[in-house]
Amino acid sequence: MFHFKQFSVDQSGCAMKINTDGVLLGALATADNPQSISDIGTGTGVIALMLAQRFANAQIDAVEIDESAAETAERNFKNSQFADRLRVYPSGFKEFFEGHPGSKYDLIVSNPPFYINSLLSPGAKKNQAKHAGEGFFKELIQSVSVHLTANGGCWLVLPPDTADMVKALAAQNGLHLQKAVKIRSFEKDEPHREIVVLGFQEIAAEITTLTIYKEVNVYSEEYRQVLKPYFLAF
C-alpha cells in the first residue's frame, strides 16, 4: 500500500508498480479546466487519482487491458474521495474507443509499454505492461487524433528514441509537439525519459528539463516541488 496525501494505492495484482515515470506524468500533465480525461493503461490507477485530485471538475475514464490490474484500480478508485468521478474499463484502448466512438477528451494521458523489439521479460503480465510493437503506437496516436478535443492535449512519458518515433507518428495524424520535458537522473546525465505533449494547435514547442536527484539519494528541489502536492515525504 502506497499512501499519498489525499489517497492511497493498493498495488497488489499489478505487474507494473508505482514508479517515477508514472508519478511525474500524473503531477505534470495539465489542461485548461479539463472536463473529461482518459488514462490509457491505468495500472494501479495512480495517475488517474493524481489527476482527480488536481482537477475537481473532471470525469476520468481509466482503461486497463490487464483484468487483475483493472480490478486493483477499481478498488483504489472506490476507496478514494474521488470515486464518483473515476471509472475503470477493463479492455485495451482500441476496443474501448471502438465501443465509445463519440467520446472526446480534453486531456489524454498514458504511461504506455515502450520497449519495442527488445528482449522480453519472463513474466507474461510484465511483458504486456512493458513491451509494445511499433503498431501499438501507430494505433494509439490514431486513436488520440480521433478522440482528443480541439484544444486538448495528449501527455505521454517515453524513452527518448520511442518519443522521436511518436512525434513522427503524431505529425502523420495532424498532431503537433507542443511541449517536451526531458527527464534525467542527475544534472550531468543524458535524459532517459521524455514527456511529450501533443495537440492539434501548431505552436512553438516548449522544451524543458527536469532533474530528479541533486546527489545520490537526495532529490532535487524541482522534483520535490513537482510532487509536493502528493507525496507525504515532501
Rank of each mutant, 00 (worst) to 15 (best):
I203A: 13
G102R: 14
G133P: 05
G43T: 04
M16C: 07
T209R: 15
S68H: 05
S121V: 15
P112S: 09
G123E: 12
Y115G: 05
K188G: 08
D21I: 08
E67L: 11
S185Q: 09
K125G: 03
I183M: 08
Y219R: 08
D61Y: 04
S145L: 08
D164W: 12
I60P: 00
P101R: 09
V197S: 05
L232K: 13
D161R: 13
K104T: 05
Y223V: 02
R193H: 09
G153M: 03
L107K: 02
K17H: 08
I65E: 03
K179I: 12
S110D: 03
A56S: 11
K182I: 09
D161G: 11
N57R: 10
G133L: 11
L28E: 01
I37D: 00
A31D: 04
G13R: 05
K125C: 07
M1H: 09
A56K: 10
A15R: 07
N19I: 12
Y105D: 04
S8Q: 11
F7C: 08
I37R: 02
A52M: 04
M50E: 01
E95T: 14
L119H: 14
L177C: 12
N33P: 10
D10L: 10
G174Q: 14
S38T: 06
L210H: 05
W155Y: 10
L49S: 01
S145T: 12
P101M: 12
E194M: 08
V197A: 03
P113D: 06
R54T: 06
F136R: 08
K214Q: 14
P229Q: 03
I212Y: 07
I195K: 01
V109D: 00
K17Y: 10
G174S: 13
F231V: 11
A163T: 03
A170Y: 04
V9M: 04
P34M: 05
G199C: 06
M16G: 02
P90C: 10
A233Q: 15
A31I: 07
P159D: 08
V9E: 01
W155E: 00
E139G: 08
S110V: 05
P229L: 00
K228W: 05
V197L: 05
Y213N: 11
A52S: 11
F234G: 07
A163E: 04
H147G: 08
S80H: 06
L25H: 00
E67R: 15
I183L: 15
W155D: 00
F97V: 08
G135K: 12
F234A: 09
P229A: 01
Y213T: 02
F93A: 04
T30G: 07
Q11W: 06
L158D: 01
F2G: 05
V196N: 01
G22E: 02
S36T: 10
F2T: 09
Q172I: 06
G43V: 04
F231Y: 15
K126I: 11
V46T: 02
L156K: 02
D21R: 07
L210Y: 03
L120Y: 10
L210I: 14
T20G: 03
K179Y: 03
T208S: 15
M50A: 11
K182L: 14
I18R: 03
V216Y: 11
A163G: 04
